[in-house]
């Protein structure tokens, strides 16, 4: 087990290094000049600016400085918002994204497991048909469409009731009303995906030999469900938790935009659109580290649940996940 964990950690560190390097060189490969947006700068100011952002040094030196700063957790200063450091931006806006994401992940995993198990039990009866159709629709409709529809629905609801039952957009720290619909929208795609996964794995498990053994042992149906079926059926769901988290994180970019939520995702998208290099690099590496850490955690968790994986770690990640 220790070897397994050590292997995972090493792998995660390597992936993170790769991501940081890729980010750095991607940013320097961008055609055009990071300072081009500065209006009519005199050569002198320009030199100052270049010195401030370290752009005057050779590329490899810049890379070394970049990696060094990353290791110290220093992401530099924003290009477009001159007096804000990237660390400040992350510190201020990431918690909002995280709250939204955690709530969405909760909806998705609990909903997925419960709906999946229930529909598997009602195989070929109407609850199953309804959920199969709902799932494929939810998988096929882009998140921003759901976000837009949800906003329309909120407006309709508010008009019907005559007062603001739910806010159409915006954010208030700690206000569950503001989180509810965005997190539902954010989790919806993953929920559908997990429902589908859970359903098929539950169907497979229901016919599994060891379930037959459990019946032959004379165990009650409920005991078979909890002790034998659920635990095994959940395994595939656990394997895709990593990709699911990644999906919810990137899905947040869209949902935060539509619902005007000041999360990190919205800032990231803005930075990308404005080519704010330091913010892009900083947030990408931050997001990368965050995702890689969570995926690592999920892998280790999976190793704990499924003894088979510890012996054959390559079994992980053979199934695709949601993007």
């Amino acid at each position: 087990m220790m070897r397994f964990i050590a292997g995972r950690v090493l792998y995660g560190v390597f992936t993170l290094w790769f991501l940081a390097t890729a980010t750095f060189f991607a940013m320097h490969a961008v055609p055009g000049d990071p300072l081009a947006s500065e209006k009519a700068v005199s050569p002198e100011i320009r030199r100052n600016l270049e010195a401030r952002y370290g752009l005057d040094k050779p590329l490899l030196t810049q890379y070394g400085i970049f990696i060094g700063n990353m290791l110290q957790g220093d992401f530099g200063i924003s290009f477009t918002q001159k007096n804000r450091s990237v660390n400040d931006i992350i510190r201020e806006h990431f918690p909002i994204s995280a709250q939204l994401g955690v709530l969405a992940l909760l909806w998705a995993t609990f909903g997925g497991v419960v709906f999946g198990a229930v529909t598997a039990y009602y195989r070929n009866r109407w609850p199953d048909y309804v959920s199969v159709v709902a799932v494929i629709i939810c998988i096929s409709v882009p998140g921003f469409v759901f976000a837009a529809l949800a906003q329309l629905a909120i407006i309709g609801l508010n008009e019907a009731v005559g007062k603001d039952v739910l806010p159409v957009a915006g954010w208030e720290a700690g206000s569950f009303r503001h989180m509810l619909v965005p997190s539902l929208v954010l989790g919806l795609g993953t929920l559908a995906y997990l429902t589908r996964l859970m359903r098929s794995s539950m169907l497979e498990i229901m016919d599994a030999d060891f379930v037959r053994t459990a019946k032959a042992k004379g165990l009650a149906t409920t005991r078979i469900f909890w002790q034998h079926q659920l635990r095994n059926a959940i395994l595939p769901v656990v394997t895709v938790l990593g990709p699911a988290i990644a999906g919810i994180t990137t899905g947040g970019f869209v949902v935060e935009q539509v619902f005007a939520i000041p999360g990190l995702g919205r800032y990231f998208v803005q930075a990308v659109q404005q080519l704010d290099y330091t913010v892009i690099m900083g947030t990408t590496v931050f997001y990368g580290a965050f995702l890689i850490f969570l995926v690592m955690l999920v892998d280790i968790l999976y190793g704990l649940i499924d003894p088979r994986i510890r012996l054959a770690p390559e079994k992980l990640r053979q199934k695709g996940g949601p993007v």
Binding site: A208, D209, F210, R212, T213, A214, K215, A216, K217, G218, L219, Q227, H228, R231, N232, L235, I305, D306, P307, R308
Partner: peptide, 21 residues
Amino acid sequence: WRGSRVGMIFQDPLSAMNPTM
């Protein structure tokens, strides 16, 4: 009586056992 007064064993023991228990 299943499992107490009548027992049953199957062909492929690996798949007949719960892998996570």
